[in-house]
Design a protein around this nucleic acid. Structure first.
Lengths: 181, 181
DNA sequence: ACCTATATATAGCGACCACTACATAAATTC
DNA sequence: GAATTTATGTAGTGGTCGCTATATATAGGT
C-alpha cells in the first residue's frame, strides 16, 4: 500500500494528473480496477494521498531547510539551493509535484487539492518570514513562491542543476537585498 | 480564418493544449470536423498557428520592451513590468501561452512546438543581453527565463497585477545587481 | 444546361477515459 | 465443515478522444 502510493506519486509527478490514466495506475500497481477503487476511492483520491506523501517527504524543501536552523535568511537560501538540487530531472521526473502536478488539469478536484496545498505551504513560508520581517512578509513570500515556481517549471523544461543553482544564488542575493529595503 | 486562429489561441491559452478538444474547437469556430482538418491539418497544426500568432502579437513582452529602446537594463526592466501587466487573468486567461500552453501535455507534437518557441525566444533574449554583458549573457538570460516562468505560473495560480508588479520590481533590482557582479 | 472540382455535412472509425455491475474466489466466522 | 462476508477478476458502462470515409451540396468552367 505504501509502495503503491509511492509508485502513483512518481507517475503523477512525472506526467501530471491528467496524463496518467487509471488503467496505467492499476497495471503499475498490479491491481485491477475494482481493487483500485476499493482502496483509493477515485483517481483524485489517490492523487491526494500521493501529494500528501510528497509534501511530507524529502521534497519539502522548506521543511528540510528549516530543520537545519539558522536565521530566516539562512533558511531561505538553504531552501532555494535545496530546490535547485532536487528539481532537475531524475528518472524522468523533474520539478515539484505540488507546483506543477495539476497544471492545465481539467479535473476540478485535482486542481482543488493542489490549490489547498499551495495555499497552506505559502502560509507556512509567510509566517516563518514574518518572525524576522513582519512588515515585508507577504511580499517576500510571494517573491519566493514565484521564484520556486519558476525553478520547477524550468526544471520541467530541462534545466539542470547548474542553471538552477545559479538562479538560486541570484534569488538568494535578491532576497537579502529585499529584506533590507 | 484570422478570427478562427484568434479564437483557438484564446482557448489553448486558457486551458492548455490537451484540455481543449477538437469538437469544442470546431463548435467554437463554427465548422465541422472535415473542414477543420482541411483548414488546419491537425489539432497540433492549429496549435502551432495559434502560438505563432500569440508570439507575434502583443504578448511578446520582450519585443514590446525592445521597441521602446534604451539600455539592456532598461529594456529588461520594461519587459518584466510588461509581463506583470499582461499575465494576470483577463477573461479567464492568465499567464503565457508559450510558457504554460503545453505543460503536462501528453502530445509530443505540441510539446515540440512549444520547446522550439522557448528555445528561440531564449536565444533572442540571450543575444540581446550579450550586446552589453557578453560575459554573463547566459546566466542573465536563464535568470529572466526562470523569473518569467515563475510569473506566468503564478498568474495561472491566481496572482494579480500587484503581486506580479512587486516581483517584477524585485527581479529588476536583482538583474541590475547581477550585471555588476 | 452540363460537367467538373471544391467544400461541406453526416456518420462513424478505433482507442481510450474514469468508473462499475456482476460473478467468482478467498478468507473469516460460527 | 457450512455459511457468511470480504476481496478480486471479468467484462462492460456511457462518454470522449483525435481523426476520417463516404456522400451530398455548392461553386465554377465551357
Amino acid at each position: 500500500m505504501d509502495e503503491a502510493i509511492h509508485t502513483a506519486m512518481k507517475l503523477f509527478h512525472r506526467r501530471g494528473f491528467d496524463a496518467v490514466g487509471v488503467a496505467e495506475l492499476g497495471a503499475e500497481l498490479g491491481i485491477k480496477p475494482p481493487s483500485f477503487y476499493a482502496a483509493f476511492g477515485s483517481k483524485a483520491g489517490l492523487f491526494r494521498q500521493a501529494v500528501e506523501r510528497y509534501a511530507a517527504g524529502e521534497a519539502n524543501v522548506f521543511g528540510r531547510a528549516l530543520a537545519k536552523g539558522g536565521t530566516v535568511t539562512e533558511v531561505i537560501e538553504r531552501m532555494l539551493h535545496e530546490a535547485a538540487k532536487i528539481y532537475p530531472e531524475h528518472d524522468g521526473i523533474a520539478g515539484c509535484l505540488v507546483i506543477d502536478g495539476a497544471r492545465n488539469s481539467a479535473d476540478a478536484e485535482a486542481c482543488a487539492i493542489i490549490a489547498s496545498f499551495k495555499k497552506s505551504s505559502r502560509k507556512t513560508l509567510r509566517d516563518f518570514i514574518a518572525t524576522e520581517f513582519p512588515r515585508q512578509a507577504d511580499e517576500l513570500a510571494d517573491f519566493l513562491v514565484i521564484a520556486l515556481g519558476g525553478m520547477s517549471g524550468a526544471a520541467r523544461d530541462g534545466a539542470g542543476v547548474r542553471t538552477l543553482k545559479a538562479f538560486a544564488a541570484a534569488a538568494s542575493r535578491a532576497f537579502r537585498t529585499e529584506t533590507t529595503r
